[in-house]
């Protein structure tokens, strides 16, 4: 079953800006799905339409088979939303925020209290339950929004940059929590600017740019498209020039930092052997960028370049 099905979704804002140019997308039940794109690409507009904060101009959206045009109330019961910006009453107490949200979903206090307690405990907020939300740290506020979104046990959880501004330790604990929720059967759609996060968590991915889906595939298939990776090598002794290593493109970033591009299929042991022959000792090795990040940048750059050409042609014709 499809948790989310989007067909030919369009959105044109009042000022004429076309945010979505007829995108189509399916998310399978149980999936952990990444929706990525640069700022202003149309991610938040898409998710806004799915959860009724934005009105679509055209197209169809259904959630677990429920068309939002036919029965939005039923569709909304199936969704939990963690928005990008904090959107709770800052003077409200933590527990009240979760209980109030449960009330909007039709859960009585008797039903909601144990669920709220469990979620607040799981997310490390139980000790803060009587604190006003404004007193929480940024990470706690993010976790509060997750607790609030899960209190009615939605089948589809939408996470719009849930770990923005969260320190790495907390981010990783939130990842574990999200993975556990997903294992228990909740379908998750994630947007994030941390591509490492998407790569670690998500099985399928769509990349949206300028209101169009430019890639929609599995994470594995997408990463397989990566034709080369750049590695950064920290050297034991300083060099003056980048060494010539047969078959590898090298660049000396500074005296003890060497960047090497390794193409798909090339053997990294061969690189070390060649460096060893030149008596170059390597202390450590790391990726210059996350693999998904490299792909993402190349895909988005490609559309930017083609968009520029299209504009040029339009200008010429109109002149």
């Amino acid at each position: 079953m499809k948790a989310l099905s989007i067909h030919n979704l369009q959105k044109t804002y009042g000022n004429g800006f076309q945010a979505l140019k007829g995108i189509s997308l399916d998310v399978k039940e149980g999936d952990f799905f990444a929706l990525l794109g640069p700022n202003g690409a149309g991610k938040s507009t898409t998710l806004g339409i799915v959860c009724s904060l934005v009105r679509k101009t055209g197209g169809k959206v259904s959630i677990f088979g429920v068309d939002i045009d036919d029965d939005f109330a039923k569709a909304k019961q199936l969704i939990g939303v963690v928005p990008q910006e904090f959107n709770f009453g800052v003077f409200e107490k933590v527990e009240d925020i979760v209980l109030t949200s449960a009330g909007y979903q039709g859960l009585t206090l008797k039903e909601a209290r144990p669920r709220a307690e469990q979620l607040l405990r799981d997310l490390g907020l139980w000790d803060k339950r009587h604190a006003q939300a404004r007193m929480l740290s940024g990470g706690m506020k993010r976790r509060l929004m997750i607790a609030r979104a899960l209190v009615h046990r939605p089948k589809l959880l939408i996470l719009d940059e849930p770990t923005a501004g969260v320190d790495i330790e907390l981010r990783r604990s939130m990842w574990s929590f999200m993975q556990e929720i997903n294992r228990q059967g909740t379908t998750i759609i994630l947007t994030t600017h941390y591509l490492e996060e998407a790569e670690s968590l998500c099985r399928n991915i769509a990349i949206i740019d300028k209101g169009e889906i430019i890639k929609n595939t599995s994470m594995k298939a997408l990463l397989a498209e990566l034709t080369s990776e750049t590695f950064v090598l920290d050297l034991a002794q300083p060099l003056i020039d980048a060494p010539k290593v047969e078959g590898f493109r090298t660049h000396l970033e500074d005296a003890t930092t060497l960047e090497v591009e390794i193409k798909k299929g090339q053997n990294i042991s061969q690189l070390f052997a060649l460096l060893f022959e030149q008596k170059i000792e390597v202390l450590s090795l790391r990726n210059k960028a996350n693999r998904l990040e490299e792909l993402f940048v190349s895909l988005v750059d490609k559309t930017a370049a083609s968009g520029f050409k299209a504009d040029e042609i339009t200008t010429e014709v109109s002149v």
């Binding site: 959860c51 009724s52 904060l53 939005f72 109330a73 039923k74 909304k76 019961q77 969704i79 939303v81 928005p83 910006e85 904090f86 959107n87 709770f88 009453g89 800052v90 109030t100 949200s101 909007y104 979903q105 039709g106 609030r148």
Partner: peptide
Amino acid sequence: FQKSIEEMLVAPVP
């Protein structure tokens, strides 16, 4: 202003 109204809008509240 605080956008907490979004909580109601995303819920099945007519």
